[in-house]
Design a protein around this nucleic acid. Structure first.
Lengths: 353, 353
DNA sequence: TTGTAAGCGTTATCAA
DNA sequence: TTGATAACGCTTACAA
């Protein structure tokens, strides 16, 4: 009867394990066994149950399952990024989501906008829904609030930068290595007056990147000329100004390294304005959609976002399988892709012509 | 005691309403009242309870709450996009997520890759977690499977294109209008040999867009010259070929409209190859990251993705508040942004020079 | 205003 | 191999 009512039209609740049991003429526990692929069910009953499941369009209620299970698992994980609308975050989310789905897990996402309070709010909401694990691109200067969650054995993995005041698995790009390589690349094309435009130093990746620049300049050229370095650039507009400024120095730099996407956009804009697009070399950190349609096509250092996401998800699911105490830090290599703008020779170097 | 154990170090379960009640010296129902902002709690007790909540770092277990509540609400919604890694989807997700968070809801996301089975799988997983509503960019030719969910009063809103074999709220871009306007724009600059490169006609938006092209060509020019039309272009490579091909016709078209992002990239590439970048006008559907750094800068028709997301979420939450029977279809305007490539005059038209 | 008891849909226990 | 029954953490009904 109940079964009839439920399968009828009009408003109805979702069928439960009880409905399935009634229709199949078995006990609820047997249905539970079938649903969870537990052994010790006679094939004949199994078939009857599966048919009932089909007929009723039954789906296990994960919420109910979760509160009763000893491990409290919900088969979902939480992902906090800075801004889901940007290409780094969205590709990361995509990869994580695929990885999770293959393991029957779903992903809750949230954007912190780099605001610490929003990050905490998102984590709190995730935890209210009892996610099995957290993947976080951390903002602010203190992630110690996550200790409470970890004590309840919710694994945490930081992505893109390490969390502060807490130890946890972390997956990062080799930011410094990338910029180092860029400097190296430029010197091979005869450059020594290499300028650097970067974001605020308080941004972890920005600090890593400029550190790579400094190290390479010390090593390969006669050190850093501070007139050629600008930091604290938050957007393409400020980068545009900074680029104009740096290129107005005498002697002008012959090459430019840009610390991120929007800085690259601003700098290219400035070079266009000054008409030096084909004379000053440029290498940007992070790829851009149409980079190969620009003139000259843009040479970039690209992060392997897919690998970052996969490795991070790897760590999370590994911890889910068997919780351990150690913490790992994984550094994912970056790649320099020469497309033209980074191979412009220095005008000083006649051999390069 | 229990309380002590729980707040101690080592593995522990999350504190429950019982722990809070015990610590505050009240009954569980009173705690429930405070947590849910129900009236009839003496301020003094309320304070004690809030303090206990703080001390224990208590968070309501949404799963447990959900199964018991009459409305079964989980305060989360599901979003199915085609590919979260692409800019349309990621901005859409971002907007929806913000809208939801303002209302204390979280978003589960999944990418269907345009595969009908994957869409169903995602929806099934969402429903297993009893999402309160579904936002879907539908793929395939049949969304009637959603009727079952709707019968359980799970509202569904389609985004970007309508679902098939089912009626539901839908939010779309004015695709046809956009291309119409593009044709109009080009004719104002003297063009009449306007070519069109489009995706497969089976893609809803692609069909809409070419329909706009056809209608405008009938209206403003002497109809469609099929030599100038190519469809079925799945990626930038095929678009590159098609563009080369179309531009080799005699007489060659003087302007080009590209049906989407990757087609535009392929076409620009081809024009570069042929050296006609500054002679043939181009308008692309959808914006590109560096569009204004190209030479000439790219004129585009942009969708108002933020509005699409907001309106869709609007409809969903409205249905959540009071379920109605009617279905609404919302068309969101698109905008033509002139940047240069679409304003190149036709060589035929001497007045345009 | 407050608390007790029942019950949500599931899994765990354990006896049959 | 099977299923009755308790229990999960919460909300609801209802009594005090």
């Amino acid at each position: 009867m109940t079964t009839e009512d439920r399968s009828a039209g009009g408003q109805s609740r979702a069928p439960t394990i009880k409905d399935v049991a009634a229709l199949a003429g078995v006990g609820v526990k047997t249905v539970s066994r079938v649903i969870n692929n537990e052994p010790n069910v006679r094939p004949e009953k199994q078939a009857r149950i599966l048919e009932a499941v089909e007929r009723l369009n039954y789906r296990r209620n994960t919420s109910a399952s979760s509160i009763r299970r000893l491990d409290q698992r919900t088969a979902s994980i939480g992902l906090v990024v800075e801004d889901l609308a940007n290409p780094f975050a969205s590709l990361l989310a995509r990869v994580v989501q695929d990885y999770a789905l293959e393991r029957q897990h779903l992903v809750l996402v949230g954007s912190s906008d780099g605001v610490a309070d929003r990050e905490r709010e998102l984590v709190a909401e995730f935890c209210a829904r009892r996610v099995d694990g957290l993947l976080i691109v951390p903002s602010g200067t203190d992630q110690s609030y996550l200790e409470a969650e970890r004590r309840r054995s919710v694994p945490v993995v930081f992505v893109d930068r390490p969390g502060r005041r807490i130890k946890a698995d972390t997956v990062l790009s080799e930011n410094d290595r990338g910029v180092r390589e860029a400097v190296h690349h430029l010197t091979r094309h005869g450059h020594s007056r290499i300028a650097y435009l970067g974001d605020r130093q308080s941004v972890y990746t920005a600090a890593q990147r400029i550190a790579g620049y400094r190290a390479a300049m010390e090593e390969l050229v006669a050190g850093v000329d501070t007139r050629y370095v600008r930091t604290g650039l938050r957007d393409s507009t400020s980068a545009y100004q900074a680029a104009l400024d740096v290129l107005a120095q005498a002697p002008a730099p012959t090459a430019l390294i840009c610390g991120n996407n929007s800085i690259t956009a601003g700098a290219v804009h400035a070079m266009h304005k000054l008409g030096v697009r084909n004379r000053v070399a440029v290498i940007g950190f992070d790829d851009l959609e149409l980079a190969d349609l620009l003139q000259p096509a843009l040479t970039v250092i690209v992060q392997d976002i897919a690998t970052i996401g996969r490795r991070a998800a790897d760590l999370l699911f590994e911890q889910l399988k068997d919780p351990t105490d150690g913490y790992r830090r994984i550094a994912v290599p970056v790649t320099l892709i020469p497309r033209g703008s980074g191979e412009i020779p220095t005008p000083d170097d006649k051999t390069g012509r």
